[in-house]
Computed example of a mutant assay.
Amino acid sequence: MTNPLLPPVSHSPALQSTVSTDTQRLATRENLEQAGAQFESVFIGMMLKSMRQARLAEGLFESKAADQFRDMADQKLAQNMAVHTPMGIGKAMTEFLSRSQPQLAAPPEGSAP
C-alpha cells in the first residue's frame, strides 16, 4: 500500500546509474590521508569563520566585497595551515578511520614503505 503523502519511489535505470558502486578508490592509505587533510582544512576554515564572526567593533571600510575576499583568503589560509602546520585533527581522523580497515593501518615507525 502506498502512502498518498509521500512521493512515489522510482526504480528507473536512469536514477540507478547515477550512483557509483566503484569503491576501489576508497581502499588506499593515500586517499584516507588526503581525506584527513581535507577534513582538517575544513575544520580550520570553520574555526577561522567563527573567529571572524566574533567582531568586537565595526570596521571603517567594511563591505560585502571585502568580506568575500577575506573569506577566500581564510579558505586558502586554512588549506595551507592544514598542510604546513597541522593541528592534528586530520591525523587523528585518519587513524580512527583506518582502525576499521586493517589493510589501511599505518606502517610502523622506522619501516620502509
Rank of each mutant, 00 (worst) to 15 (best):
N31A: 12
A73S: 06
A57E: 11
D22M: 07
V9Y: 05
R52H: 04
L60Y: 09
A73M: 12
G36Q: 02
S41M: 10
F39I: 04
A82F: 05
L56G: 15
R52K: 13
S63Y: 07
K76Q: 13
G110V: 01
A66K: 15
F61C: 03
A35M: 11
L6G: 02
S17T: 08
V42W: 13
M81N: 03
V42H: 06
N3S: 11
R52M: 01
M87Q: 11
R70P: 06
R52Y: 13
F96A: 10
T94A: 13
A37M: 14
I89T: 05
E33L: 15
V19K: 07
I44C: 03
G59D: 07
P113T: 09
Q16V: 03
G36Y: 09
A65R: 15
F39H: 00
L77S: 05
R52T: 05
P113L: 11
S20T: 11
G59Y: 07
T85K: 14
A92N: 05
P108F: 05
E95Y: 04
P108T: 04
L6S: 12
Q79D: 15
M1R: 09
M72G: 06
E62I: 07
T94I: 04
R25H: 14
E62W: 02
L26D: 15
S50Q: 15
T23K: 12
Q38A: 12
A35E: 03
F39P: 01
G88K: 00
V9S: 08
A78M: 04
F69W: 10
M47A: 09
P7I: 01
L56W: 05
D22R: 04
T21E: 04
T85E: 15
P107D: 15
T85Q: 14
F69G: 01
E58A: 14
A65C: 01
N3R: 10
P113V: 13
L5N: 11
S50L: 15
S41G: 14
A105V: 06
T23R: 12
P4A: 00
E40F: 08
M51V: 13
M46Y: 09
A35N: 03
T18F: 12
M47I: 11
T23D: 11
Q38E: 15
M1Q: 10
P8Q: 00
F69T: 12
Q53P: 00
M81D: 06
G36F: 02
Q103Y: 08
E95R: 15
Q79T: 05
S63R: 06
S50I: 13
D71V: 13
A37V: 13
A82M: 06
M51W: 04
V42K: 11
L48N: 04
A92T: 01
T23M: 09
A106Q: 13
P8N: 04
G88Y: 05
T94L: 03
G88P: 01
F43Y: 14
P102Y: 01
G90Y: 03
P7C: 03
